[in-house]
Amino acid sequence: MRNPAVALAFLAALGYGFYNAIGHMQSDKPVAIPEASPGASPTAPRPIKENVVAYYTGDKAMQNAKTKGHSTLPRFHALIKAGTPGTYTVKFPLTQNGATEHIWMQLVGFSDGHFVGLLADEPVNGNQYKMGDRMTVAEADVEDWMIRDGGEVYGGYTVRQAFADMPKEQAEKYGITFRD
């Protein structure tokens, strides 16, 4: 049964192509959110597939991570201006079929307060969009940002939170070092 109080947060796209999409979902319906594990809080994060985790919309830690991601956009712009090497991505809410997921986009440009880029993962709430689609997102709608160069990541505050919510050994397998 789908919990309408759950939104999707994506771990995927620690850079475009970091993961291969795990099969394109052909459905035009939102993904079903699984029930909480036995003994877990009904608002606990729930894995959808390897690189997709559903979070309760009221999850304070994830909301704080999104707030930090958005509030540190000036740092992102400074790192871009400085020519920091790596893959540049931003995270934003994408709504289709009445459901919102939070997805990463690899940047190809920025102009007049808008980021332009390519979707860095397959959306799970329908088939209106697909990985690689060109999108334009207003800076005001950006929830997080990352610059990934190998195993080093600047930003990625929602990814940091998702890693904190998973078993330590699972998070360690990604070999990511976060920088500010």
Score class of each variant (00 low, 15 high):
41 S>M: 06
127 N>A: 13
79 L>T: 00
47 P>E: 03
132 G>I: 07
81 K>W: 09
136 T>C: 01
51 N>I: 11
80 I>E: 04
100 T>L: 00
48 I>N: 01
117 G>Q: 12
105 M>P: 00
122 E>G: 03
115 F>W: 14
126 G>H: 09
94 L>S: 00
43 T>C: 03
18 F>P: 02
114 H>K: 09
107 L>C: 04
45 P>G: 03
35 E>N: 12
47 P>L: 07
28 D>N: 15
120 A>M: 11
136 T>E: 14
56 Y>Q: 13
63 Q>L: 15
93 P>Q: 08
26 Q>M: 02
60 K>F: 02
125 N>D: 14
83 G>H: 05
52 V>M: 06
53 V>G: 03
22 I>K: 13
102 H>A: 03
58 G>N: 05
71 S>N: 14
112 D>H: 07
52 V>C: 08
135 M>K: 15
107 L>T: 01
115 F>H: 09
80 I>P: 00
100 T>Q: 01
67 T>Q: 11
69 G>M: 11
19 Y>M: 07
102 H>D: 04
134 R>E: 00
85 P>F: 11
119 L>M: 14
49 K>G: 01
37 S>Y: 04
128 Q>E: 12
101 E>G: 06
76 F>S: 11
79 L>K: 01
98 G>M: 04
70 H>L: 08
57 T>F: 02
15 G>I: 09
29 K>I: 05
70 H>C: 08
25 M>V: 15
134 R>L: 01
53 V>L: 07
128 Q>A: 14
81 K>T: 14
119 L>Q: 10
91 K>G: 03
26 Q>G: 06
24 H>K: 13
37 S>E: 12
124 V>Q: 11
63 Q>D: 10
82 A>V: 02
72 T>F: 04
16 Y>A: 12
15 G>F: 07
40 A>E: 12
13 A>I: 00
94 L>W: 01
60 K>G: 06
20 N>E: 14
63 Q>S: 11
85 P>W: 10
97 N>W: 01
111 S>F: 02
34 P>S: 04
47 P>Y: 05
84 T>Q: 12
99 A>D: 12
129 Y>T: 10
124 V>D: 03
40 A>Q: 12
25 M>N: 15
137 V>F: 09
105 M>D: 00
67 T>P: 00
54 A>H: 09
133 D>C: 08
72 T>I: 13
120 A>D: 09
129 Y>F: 15
36 A>D: 11
47 P>Q: 08
21 A>I: 09
132 G>Q: 10
17 G>H: 05
127 N>P: 00
138 A>Y: 10
56 Y>P: 13
29 K>N: 10
127 N>M: 10
94 L>G: 01
22 I>Q: 15
118 L>W: 00
32 A>D: 15
42 P>I: 06
133 D>K: 05
26 Q>I: 02
43 T>K: 07
121 D>C: 11
125 N>I: 03
36 A>S: 13
50 E>D: 05
133 D>N: 15
140 A>G: 09
18 F>W: 06
141 D>R: 10
12 A>N: 12
74 P>A: 04
28 D>G: 15
52 V>N: 02
